[in-house]
């Protein structure tokens, strides 16, 4: 798992060092880190649906790792933006963070993940109890902001942003359906309740 998660970073670093990232390597790194982060976020959100559809319970163990890799790539994405792309010219970074729609949503998505990364340890899970659950639902907002950030920065070719949107919508519809079915007055609730172990898996 760790090996798999670090492969994109190693590959990028290797291509960068050997000068094989094309004529605009900074842009290439930036886009690839952002894309990898979004894939990890969507993978994180896929764990629960996969688990309840297939009954493969042990998959839950990789969820935290996937989530932390999402945060790792997103942090790298932001650092490359600030250090390599903007060469720490704060005047311009602040302008971006206050005036550019796609940068505002992207940055917000990353900031929202910081408390989730911090509270990802067993100790914090115990400490926060039910509130941990609620706090970690921020990942839905964060991912949605990430997709919007992706969509708004392309010029005309919205193919991949739309694919990401479709995946996110499918993953969220799955959760919505479970939520609907679980409401007490809903006659179909019993059946589905059995397929999902507990509300915390949402």
């Amino acid at each position: 798992m760790w090996l798999g998660g670090l492969t994109p970073a190693t590959w990028l670093a290797w291509r960068f060092v050997t000068g094989r990232l094309g004529a605009n390597p900074i842009e290439e790194i930036l886009h690839r880190l952002g894309g990898t982060a979004l894939i990890f976020l969507l993978a994180t959100l896929s764990v629960t649906p996969i688990r309840s559809l297939t009954g493969w319970n042990s998959i839950i163990q990789v969820r935290r790792t996937l989530g932390l890799f999402s945060f790792f790539y997103l942090t790298m994405h932001f650092l490359v933006y600030a250090i390599l792309d903007q060469t720490l010219d704060w005047e311009f970074i602040i302008e971006d963070l206050t005036e550019r729609r796609y940068i505002i949503v992207g940055f917000t998505g990353w900031v929202l993940l910081i408390p989730l990364a911090v509270t990802s340890t067993k100790k914090w899970i115990r400490k926060l109890g039910k509130r941990w659950q609620r706090l970690h639902r921020l990942v839905y907002i964060s991912t949605a902001l990430g997709v919007a950030h992706f969509y708004w920065q392309v010029k005309a070719d919205t193919y991949w942003p739309l694919v990401a949107t479709a995946v996110l919508v499918a993953l969220m519809l799955f959760r919505f359906q479970i939520w609907i079915n679980r409401r007490p007055l809903d006659p179909g609730s019993k059946q589905l309740k059995q397929s999902v172990n507990s509300p915390k898996d949402l």
Binding site: A23, I26, E27, D89, F92, D96, R100
Partner: peptide, 16 residues
């Protein structure tokens, strides 16, 4: 409307 045109990256250069 979505990004600044005040600076540019000359390919091959780091600082805009």
């Amino acid at each position: 409307p979505r990004w600044s045109q005040a600076r540019e990256r000359r390919l091959g250069e780091l600082r805009k």
